[in-house]
Design a protein around this nucleic acid. Structure first.
Length: 423
RNA sequence: GAGCCUGUAGCUCAAUGGCAGAGCGCCACACUGUGGAUGUGGAUGUUGUGGGUUCGAAACCCAUCAGGCUCCCCA
């Protein structure tokens, strides 16, 4: 392979096998979303850079987005996330929408980052949100949607877990330790990094950020207290709702879950593979209160999460949960016996298609062994042979490729015979 | 943005300065009206790319591209 233009770094080529996995994830995402009454929507793939700069900070956008100037001199970017577009679209019709808004989406996103395992520059992301209801029960519903998805792809609660925390609970705990509001962000980052650092290093890092030894000890105690949720009415109600929704086996309270995002205000959650090699979150989300503030809307509370296709795809492959790839969408091959009968094979195939069957015709006359080998490699279920003997009597040989059995029937009866095999 | 590792046939990988190979896959034949098995034979390479060192480079050096791991970041 020389002198070929390589694909752009971090992009992905979807050969049919990878496309099948993408569609598998998309199908399960759609099913889980619709099972809870969410409706599909989408936003532009290209947006003005200012849409993100307002919320995310300019540096993040400029360094980690695909930004370019269009022919009209406009600074635009391939969308790195969906939430700002959601905020704008909601705000534009804030007074005519029926609440709660339950919306989901599955589409492409781009981020200009260093590609590595589980992270590419081009990826698909499931976004799902409920807007207009502010309750722990609504939070529970979103978590249940996520759990339903995990179950539907075959990831049981032993294999995948959703860890839950609450920003308000943590803030009250920080307050009790005398950690000021200005320090909260630093402490959140500190908690976020704990799993990545050696304990001793983390301790000294904590002291460097300005915590006293007493505050550090108190923080460690909080982060080890997995019953802390009982002090939170919100989380108590959340877990009651999760139990009623039948997903409590998927969910655990974990005071170490913070999530980097500034805009989360209440419940936050992240799903992880408990056994695999990937330490990246499968999905993550939470409750936010001020979504519309930057785009001129009135206050509106919401809860939602996002899941990239890359991490879940790797986990599904590692867990052997990807359905076997079908090289062909059809199950029936019409063979071409020879030059003379070629057009008759075409005609037979046309008849079968009119009867509602999907069939493919071998593209040219060839030896039957070759055509059968082809059918076998394509994992087809049925092969039809119409040689001189059958053609003369308007018959066709219908062979079941799984059992090797073959019957010779009239052309009219062929559809029925095929249906017996492929259903 | 930083550090480290890797790149050889379609795929997985050998060859450590001296003839570029194996397994799998692919193609043909055995088998001119029937697939999976078996056997026999066959094709496939500018060793990622460009430059340098050397009598000689897949190997050593430099650059570059791509992938992986880690840091950063992760909206």
């Amino acid at each position: 392979m020389k002198n070929v233009i390589q694909p752009v770094k971090g992009t992905r080529e979807f050969y049919p096998e990878q496309m099948a996995l993408r569609n598998f994830i998309n199908d399960k995402v759609r099913a889980a979303s619709q099972a809870f009454g969410y409706v599909e929507w989408d936003a532009p793939f290209i947006e003005a850079i200012d849409l993100y700069a307002a919320k995310s900070g300019e540096e993040l956008v400029k360094k980690q987005s695909f930004v370019f100037t269009d022919r009209g001199g406009e600074e635009v970017t391939l969308r790195p996330e969906l939430t700002p577009s959601l905020a704008r679209m909601i705000a534009a019709k804030q007074n005519e929408l029926m609440y709660p808004v339950r919306w989901w989406s599955f589409g492409p996103f781009w981020r200009y980052e260093q590609p590595q395992k589980g992270r590419t520059r081009e990826f698909f992301q499931w976004n799902i949100d409920m807007l207009g209801v502010n309750s722990p029960e609504a939070d529970a519903e979103l978590i249940a949607v996520g759990a339903t998805f995990l179950r539907s792809v075959g990831l049981g609660p032993q294999r995948a877990q959703i860890y839950v925390n609450n920003r308000r609970l943590m803030e009250s705990q920080f307050d009790a330790l005398g950690i000021t509001a200005e320090k909260r962000l630093d402490v959140s980052n500190l908690v976020d990094r704990r799993s990545k650092m050696e304990p001793a290093k983390w301790d000294s890092y904590a002291l460097e950020t300005g915590l006293s030894q007493a505050q550090l000890d108190g923080l460690k105690k909080i982060l080890a207290d997995f019953d802390l949720w009982k002090q939170s009415d919100e989380l108590t109600r959340l877990f009651a709702a999760l139990a009623a929704l039948g997903v409590e086996d998927y969910v655990k309270f974990d005071p170490n879950i913070m999530r980097g995002l500034l805009y989360y205000t209440g419940t936050v959650f992240e799903a992880f593979d408990t056994t695999g090699s990937l330490k990246r979150a499968i999905f993550g989300g939470g409750r936010y209160d001020n979504l519309l503030a930057d785009v001129g809307g009135n206050p509106l509370s919401g809860v939602g999460f996002a899941m990239g296709d890359v991490v879940i795809g790797i986990i599904l492959k590692e867990a052997g949960l990807v359905p076997e790839f079908q090289p062909s969408p059809v199950q029936v091959l019409v063979t071409v016996f020879d030059e003379k009968l070629w057009m008759q094979s075409f005609a037979l195939a046309a008849e079968l298609r009119r009867a509602g069957l999907d069939v493919m015709v071998f593209p040219e006359p060839a030896k039957l062994p070759k055509q059968f080998k082809f059918a076998d490699k394509m994992k087809l279920k049925v092969a039809l042979v119409m040689g001189p003997d059958e053609a003369e009597k308007r018959q066709v040989a219908v062979k079941n490729l799984s059992t090797g059995e073959q019957v010779i029937v009239s052309r009219e009866a062929a559809v029925g015979e095929i249906r017996k095999i492929v259903g």
